[in-house]
Structures are given as structure tokens and as C-alpha cells.
């Protein structure tokens, strides 16, 4: 009886300890484990926040089958860096874009963070951010991709991103006619 009680107590303390733990363990598709602070994860990722709130976080590593280890490493890296950074006034600066919802310009460290990524790693990161519902990271990575497209002709964009042109000549001519605005130059 006493042993049982002791066991129960131990379990209880372990549970309390678990609840107090301020990190969550994430497991990538190839089985690698990453730790990230609970607070940052909940703040940056809507999906992880939901999992933490719903109690579906596994102590031995929450399985994220869709995310490879490299992308997850980047995600965790981003979370850690984000926790250390201080939001600057640049975040609030409005965009000159025509879009109704102004997006925030990435900060210097975020720029550097995505700049060092390779092409494939960047797209892996976009997909991971999309999967985890990390809006800020999605903003930063999409900004990076749009910067890669900025000021390029369609041919150059096709070359950079390996996009295959599946228009026939006539279709291309027609669509260029419709979008004359883009191709007008005086």
C-alpha cells in the first residue's frame, strides 16, 4: 500500500515536472529530435500552440512527419533566435505595396537567417512554416522568394526557379496581349 502511494506520488511529481518543463521536443520525419522552448513555440506557431494547449505534445518527441530534419533544424533555430531578438520599429513600418494587408518587413537578423539558406532549404522551410502555421516565418521566407523574383523578366524567373513553360506560342502571345500592362515600355 505504501509502495503504491509512493509510486503515485512519484508519478505525480513527474507529471508536475513535465508540466513545468519549458521546452517541447519535436521529432522530424527522419527521427531526429529537436528541443525548442515552449513559450517561443506557442507564440510563433499556431499549430504547436494548439498542440500544447490540447496536451498532445509527446514527451519523447512530437512526431512531425511532414518536416525533414534540416527544415526542422531551421525552424528551431528561428524560434531560438526570435526569442533572443528584440522587436524593432522596422516591424511596424507599413509597406508600399498595393495590398490591403500590410506585411511587416523582415528584420536584419531574419534577412540574414534566410539569406544563408540554399534554394532547396528555403522551400523546405516555407513548407514547414506553412505546415506549422508560423505566420511570421512564412512572411520572412515569402519575402525572400519575392525578392528573388523582383526585377526579373519571366525568362529569368523561369531559369532561377526551374519553371517549365507549358504555353504554346499562340497562348503566350494571347496572354501577353491581355497583360500588355506588364510589358509596355516606352
Amino acid at each position: 500500500m505504501e509502495v503504491d502511494k509512493g509510486k503515485g506520488e512519484a508519478e505525480e511529481t513527474r507529471k508536475v515536472a513535465e508540466a513545468d518543463r519549458d521546452t517541447v521536443t519535436l521529432k522530424s520525419s527522419d527521427g531526429k529530435l529537436f528541443e525548442v522552448s515552449k513559450e517561443a513555440a506557442a507564440r510563433l506557431s499556431t499549430v504547436l500552440a494548439g498542440m500544447i494547449a490540447g496536451g498532445s505534445i509527446d514527451d519523447n518527441g512530437t512526431d512531425l512527419k511532414q518536416i525533414g530534419s534540416e527544415a526542422l533544424e531551421n525552424v528551431v533555430d528561428y524560434c531560438n533566435k526570435h526569442a533572443n531578438s528584440i522587436p524593432s520599429a522596422a516591424l511596424i513600418s507599413s509597406s508600399i505595396s498595393f495590398n490591403t494587408a500590410p506585411f511587416k518587413e523582415p528584420e536584419e537578423w531574419e534577412r540574414k537567417f534566410v539569406d544563408r539558406l540554399s534554394h532547396d532549404a528555403l522551400f523546405d522551410l516555407v513548407e514547414a512554416a506553412n505546415f506549422l502555421g508560423m505566420e511570421r516565418l512564412l512572411d520572412v521566407t515569402c519575402h525572400k522568394i519575392s525578392e528573388m523574383m523582383k526585377g526579373k523578366s519571366p525568362d529569368q524567373i523561369r531559369e532561377v526557379f526551374n519553371i517549365k513553360n507549358d504555353y504554346t506560342k499562340e497562348e503566350l502571345e494571347e496572354i501577353r496581349q491581355e497583360l500588355a500592362w506588364a510589358f509596355y515600355d516606352d
Binding site: S146, N165, R176
Partner: peptide, 23 residues
């Protein structure tokens, strides 16, 4: 996601992307 990317470009560049492929 592609729209998220496109909305960061200016209108003329956005329209030009329509000629990339049927996608």
C-alpha cells in the same frame, strides 16, 4: 503561398508572372 509571394511584388511584375506557365 504563391499569393503571399506575389502580393509583395509590384503590379507589373505580378502580371508578368502569368506568362511563366499555365500554373
Amino acid at each position: 503561398l504563391l499569393l503571399l509571394i506575389l502580393q509583395r511584388l509590384d503590379t507589373r511584375s505580378v502580371l508578368a508572372t502569368a506568362t511563366l506557365s499555365k500554373r
